[in-house]
């Protein structure tokens, strides 16, 4: 009899937590379908190993999705972001993390990306991963992109992509996105307003 009671108790405990877990899962899924592209945490690979967005809690994160063979659009955006950061004080710069995510893992290795982004700003990091992982993160941030074969070009293929700098606050919440061609001054204003907020 006593044994039976203990068994019931444990079955109850296990079912209770399983229920909680399921409810949370359902809520999460509902949340993501209600608010598509609302950002959120992710883990991707850098030249120094895995990096998560949550590693930068307490910092403002500027996020950009692109690819290294992109000769113009991506460098322009990274240049605008780095120019904005050069207008900040050294203390403020420490509080901002620039992140470039490659949509082209086939061509962009983490090591090459690290070299590439540091050419714009020393503290920038480049992240990539398997295609399906990148696809998931891109969906989180509503990145529109598509691999397109260019038959007559030596490029082989290009990636059509939306060009947006996402600004994430110190708590990891996606707050702003700037259109392509935002000036460094405009980006700086948005960075400063997020920097002013308490940790």
């Amino acid at each position: 009899m006593k044994n039976n009671r203990a068994l019931y108790f444990w079955v109850f405990v296990v079912l209770f937590f399983a229920g909680l877990w399921l409810a949370q899962l359902a809520l999460k899924q509902q949340g993501s379908s209600l608010l598509p592209g609302n950002g959120g945490d992710f883990t991707l690979q850098s030249a120094q190993g895995p990096v998560s967005l949550s590693d930068f809690r307490g910092k403002v994160v500027a996020l950009y999705f692109g690819y290294m063979s992109c000769p113009d659009i991506c460098p322009t955006s990274l240049w605008s972001l780095s120019s904005a950061m050069r207008q900040l004080s050294p203390e403020q710069v420490e509080q901002v993390q620039g992140v470039f995510i490659s949509l082209d893992p086939e061509r962009d290795s983490p090591a090459a990306m690290s070299l590439f982004v540091k050419g714009f700003f020393e503290s920038f990091i480049g992240l990539t991963d398997r295609q399906e992982v990148i696809d998931r993160v891109a969906r989180q941030y509503s990145v529109v992109y598509q691999k397109v074969a260019l038959k007559e070009s030596a490029m082989g293929y290009v990636l059509d992509h939306s060009s947006v700098i996402y600004l994430i606050d110190k708590a990891g919440v996606l707050r702003y996105f700037s259109p392509h061609n935002a000036t460094p001054e405009e980006i700086k204003v948005e960075l400063l307003s997020l920097l002013k907020e308490a940790d």
């Binding site: 000769p71 659009i73 992109y145 598509q146 947006v164």
Partner: peptide, 9 residues
């Protein structure tokens, strides 16, 4: 194209 940059030869 509505914010999506498409590079073409």
């Amino acid at each position: 194209d509505q914010g999506v940059m498409r590079m073409r030869k």
